[in-house]
Nucleic acid binder design. Structure first.
Lengths: 226, 226
DNA sequence: TGTGTTATCCATAGATCTATGGATAACGAA
DNA sequence: TTCGTTATCCATAGATCTATGGATAACACA
């Protein structure tokens, strides 16, 4: 059949791709990567965040490191892991895209929890930029504050979802709120929007989340500077 | 540690993503997917192209179908497989991007075979569009002809790499040749360019290949129509 | 109703992962 | 030096994949 053989040397190439694919075999590893796309974390913190034993977490991280998907930084007795590149986060995004397009179950799962914030479109990144310039929106980062510090949308305020109810008064009741979180598979922002609407606020989710914002080449603020 | 628990329901989500990841565990499966992103093929043809036994190939295809990454079309006693969506091809592309960014070995492998066509940048898709309008380039599809029929760049001529030497005279010696193939990991176009240059022709590769062209939303011609 | 094609189904030996407890290593602080 | 901390290393039982031969199913065509 035509020429397939001259494609030969590529067996090696596909082998390399598979090496990366093997990392994505395991739900917890994907979760770790997703988390690491939000900023660096210690092994300890990752274990807590994913509800795994320390040794197991460490083992998974070793695998990811061997495949060069993550890198580390040592600080005293601590080791901080981070995603090795933008492309890695892009890969997770792609994976999510396929899942959303192909697995009815995903749609289903997302819809179930997302139902309260449904009925309104998410706001696009470019529209948000315009609205921010006009100054008539409050941009709300509802991720854990460590993730906010590791990088957030310029001008956004940080109120982790769990504190949102208590700090509701800090948000101008007249302004529309645009909430964002980790990405299209993360439910923090939709939950925040649901809560806000219950309290009579006008609120919407941003399309996608922080990694996608970064990948779009838009500006990112660090630390507690707005 | 801050709020991680409210992220709960997502365990299910990551499970779904992992389901897709499991397909990418195996070099041959990635090769199959890559092939299917060029157009549909029968089990038989896929087995031949990837040098696997029919039963093994079929088994792999079942796995990919279960994960909804590929779909089938029956025709008599034949079954034709195809990629289930654009996103699937995008996922393979992402995987390649990560590999290129992170695995030195990949760079190495690519460089080894690519060396002859190095030293010249690849031409971008937008530049090619301009040049085609000007009419001073020959666009050359060097993939197997079945893949050309399944979709090619408008105006491109089809000369599978293996026939290139014999049909060299069919190409205007005055024009610059832009060759393309399956994508950045495919070596057909670089090899074609190397051959052309050896014969004193002016030739370059297109950036990426057919799937990326399609993903960029550019027009695609079918069958033998130019 | 036979026969040849093209695929899938099935069972299974072998090869590969995964989670985990316990030991070890590298530090920082007393 | 001696403890706590934070991680990695190691060995291993259990759980999961993978490749393949042989049987079976669905068709096309005499």
């Amino acid at each position: 059949m035509d020429n397939e053989s001259s494609y030969s040397g590529s067996a090696l190439l596909y082998e390399q791709l598979a090496r990366i694919g093997k990392v994505l075999t395991h739900a917890k590893r994907i979760e770790l990567l997703d988390l690491l796309c939000q900023g660096e974390r210690s092994v300890d913190a990752l274990a807590a965040a994913t509800a795994m034993k320390l040794t197991t977490t460490s083992a998974h991280l070793q695998v990811m490191r061997a495949a060069r998907l993550v890198e580390i930084r040592r600080e005293g007795t601590r080791v901080y892991y981070r995603a090795a590149s933008e492309e890695v986060c892009g890969l997770i995004t792609s994976l999510g895209d396929v899942a959303k397009a192909r697995l009815a179950e995903v749609e289903q799962i997302l819809r179930e929890i997302d139902s309260d914030s449904m009925g309104t479109e998410r706001i696009t990144r470019s529209e948000l930029l315009v609205r921010v310039r006009q100054g008539d929106v409050v941009v709300l980062d509802v991720r854990p504050s460590t993730e906010y510090y590791a990088g957030h949308i310029p001008g956004a305020i940080s109120i982790p979802l769990e504190h949102l109810e208590a700090e509701l008064l800090a948000i101008d009741p007249a302004a529309e709120v645009v909430a964002y979180c980790r990405g299209p598979l993360c439910l923090l922002a939709p939950q925040a929007v649901a809560l806000l609407r219950e309290r009579g606020r006008s609120a919407r989710c941003l399309e996608d989340g922080m990694p996608e914002w970064r990948q779009a080449g838009l500006p990112v603020s660090l630390g507690d500077q707005r």
